[in-house]
């Protein structure tokens, strides 16, 4: 479904990605794990067109989208839940969801809105509330719900667990698995490597802009290097 070949991205003089290649097949959950600054978010931003790569190629469903503007990539079915959620805090919950459906077929709006409210009942309760009054977990749900309004084929999730309590992390990850079961392909970026590996089919380990390891998530969970660096032999490396 998605192929990324030798992707290179630089911010000014600082090269963030030194040639990343990865692929996501339809129906998969693929996760990118790695430390801060490894290039995980940049990879997602390049895929959804928010940053222009210096070199490399991104192909989505057989179409080259390397130079396609962000708003057109969304229209092709790539949803992006960005780091820090980026919800519209001055708008109400419902207005956020309406904007999520901005380029969707208006005839499907009520059906999609109801589907989001079914999945996140909390959002229905707070639909008239300003999004700024939501808790961190609710904001994450809103960001997810907003992306779902477009029925994305591929969903890019950037650190959905960030700043959430362990119980909420659990909840969000259950939702991700559910979304995947109902047919959404997922590319997940996480610092919480243990959680990410537990739900993913395959994983890539990024280090300073390069893929250093990849394989089935289960194998990586038991890989000594991954264990030492990201899963924390003891408690030390837990984020």
């Amino acid at each position: 479904m998605l192929q990324v070949q030798d992707l290179r991205v630089a911010y000014g003089n600082i090269q963030a990605l030194h040639g990343i290649s990865l692929s996501v097949a339809e129906g998969e959950i693929v996760t990118l794990i790695g430390a801060n600054g490894a290039g995980k978010s940049t990879t997602l931003r390049a895929i959804s067109g928010l940053v222009r790569p210096r070199a490399g190629k991104i192909v989505f469903q057989g179409q080259d989208i390397t130079r396609t503007p962000a708003h057109k990539i969304v229209a092709m079915g790539v949803g992006h839940v960005p780091e820090g959620r980026k919800i519209f805090t001055e708008m109400t919950v419902q207005e956020n969801l309406e904007l999520g459906a901005y380029i969707a077929d208006p005839k499907r709006f009520h059906e999609d809105l109801n589907a989001v409210f079914e999945r996140f009942p909390r959002l229905r309760e707070r639909r008239r509330q300003s999004a700024s009054t939501l808790s961190g977990g609710e904001q994450q749900m809103l960001a997810l719900g907003r992306a779902l309004m477009l029925r994305p084929k591929l969903l890019l999730l950037d650190e959905p667990s960030m700043g959430l309590s362990p119980r909420l992390v659990q909840e969000i990850f259950e939702i991700i698995v559910e979304l995947n079961r109902s047919g959404t392909t997922i590319l997940l970026v996480e610092q919480n490597a243990a959680m990410a590996l537990s739900i993913a089919h395959r994983a890539y380990v990024l280090e300073t802009g390069r893929v250093v390891l990849d394989g089935p998530a289960q194998d990586l969970q038991n890989h000594p290097a991954v264990k030492a660096a990201y899963l924390g032999g003891g408690q030390s490396a837990n984020g």
Binding site: T89, G100, Y102
Partner: peptide, 19 residues
């Protein structure tokens, strides 16, 4: 609405499919 979305958060507006 799109203009307001751009003002509030341009990146978020981008990923809503707003040009």
């Amino acid at each position: 609405r799109s203009c307001i979305a751009v003002r509030e958060d341009e990146v978020a507006a981008d990923i809503m499919g707003i040009d």
